[in-house]
Nucleic acid binder design. Structure first.
Lengths: 215, 215
DNA sequence: GATATATTTAACCAAATGGTTAAAATAATA
DNA sequence: TATTATTTTAACCATTTGGTTAAATATATC
């Protein structure tokens, strides 16, 4: 065998999947053109058929690959019981990276959710234990539970707390597009995305810490 | 003339636009089929051509219609200077309605954003003054500024505060799909969406109020 | 060198697509 | 009733689509 199952982005199979993801995000499942995917991956269209048989399987494999990648990324938050503000920083940084550096992957998954998310279920269910904020044994969930038990923060609903933290950072995912394309040109061009992200990060930590800090 | 410009959902033009929106959300711009749109609207395909000439204009008109509808919805938040917790309730209710009752419209706009949002700019720019949280003269923006001036809440960045409030409620948009399709079936079926929304609303208000309340 | 895998070439095809047209029929209005 | 606006019918078409095939070539492995 020449290739392994690992993602090295250098073998044709992976190059096709990356190209497919780009194509699916930009044009949607039905608008995606296999010929364009082949062009982007710099392989022949016949090779797509060789590896994936058809468009649907290619889509499913691309989605599975992306979900795997994102879950791994999410687990980049260290497991150590650092103090809360440090932990908040870690969470922010991982999700900022997710919504900026990996925004293509994230958009792919989100567009699948918008379409109904039918393909997602069988990909995510087997891996639900790996998701840090799952309210059974997620590492993040357990961390905040423990902090609460130790009396370091107020008693609040931990699941909702984690959702609040993550959802507040999510708008930076829209920031680049919105600032540049919608607000931009109307006199807001000077608002630099990176400043927005930095400010946002600080604001969320402050607001949330004030919200859960014990008097 | 038989029809006016008003949206009454009973004239064919509006029926086509509604059907088009559904189609565009489900299949994406390129995947959308004009024949299916005609079927959904219960009109003949030739009528689409009669009103909109082509697919792209139909898409643009559908998007403009939806944006108008959503902005009107956003302005459903009363302008009165009620006390903050009351105002928070109002904001929650409008956005909950937006993310649940009007989720189809919202998904349409979001999918356009995911595709790049090129069509949105020229639709939103002329109406930016009408958006309650725009940081120039948005009603919501001015409300919180005033509350701050009166010393009723801490001095924080109002723009980020509004983003935080709205973004925290946004996950309920995903809740229905995620709970039913992804988590659902794995033993979480009992988590009813409406309970999640109710809990979420309370949590956000509590967390945010604690975050901005003066000691 | 033999073997297996990976990749390209170049052609093919039935089906579906968005768009178009012209004429007729229907409904509303004045 | 005459006029205008709305809607349907039924056909047409060039182009593109996803998918398929078979044979050739390239590359790695043993």
């Amino acid at each position: 065998m020449k290739n392994t199952n690992k993602t090295d982005d250098n073998n044709s199979k992976d190059k096709i999947l990356i190209a497919a993801m780009d194509e699916f995000v930009e044009f949607g499942y039905y608008g995606a053109r296999t010929q364009r995917i082949a062009n982007k991956a710099k392989v022949n269209k016949a090779l797509l058929h060789y590896y994936f048989s058809n468009k649907e399987r290619m889509y499913e494999e691309a989605l599975a690959k992306v979900v795997t990648l994102l879950i791994d990324k999410l687990n980049g938050i260290s497991d150590e019981p650092v103090e809360i503000e440090k932990k908040m920083e870690q969470i922010m940084d991982v999700y900022i990276s997710l919504f900026t550096d990996y925004s293509g992957y994230f958009r792919f998954v989100l567009s699948e959710v918008l379409r109904g998310g039918d393909k997602l279920k069988k990909i995510i269910i087997p891996r639900i234990k790996e998701i840090p904020f799952n309210p059974i044994n997620g590492t993040l969930y357990k961390y905040f539970k423990e902090q609460m038990k130790q009396g370091n923060i107020k008693k609040v609903n931990v699941f909702h707390l984690i959702i609040s933290i993550i959802s507040q950072i999510a708008p930076i995912f829209l920031a680049k597009g919105v600032i540049e394309k919608i607000i931009g040109g109307a006199g807001f061009d000077k608002l630099i995305v990176s400043k927005f992200i930095k400010d946002r990060k600080k604001f969320i930590i402050d607001l949330t810490m004030n919200g859960i800090r014990k008097e």
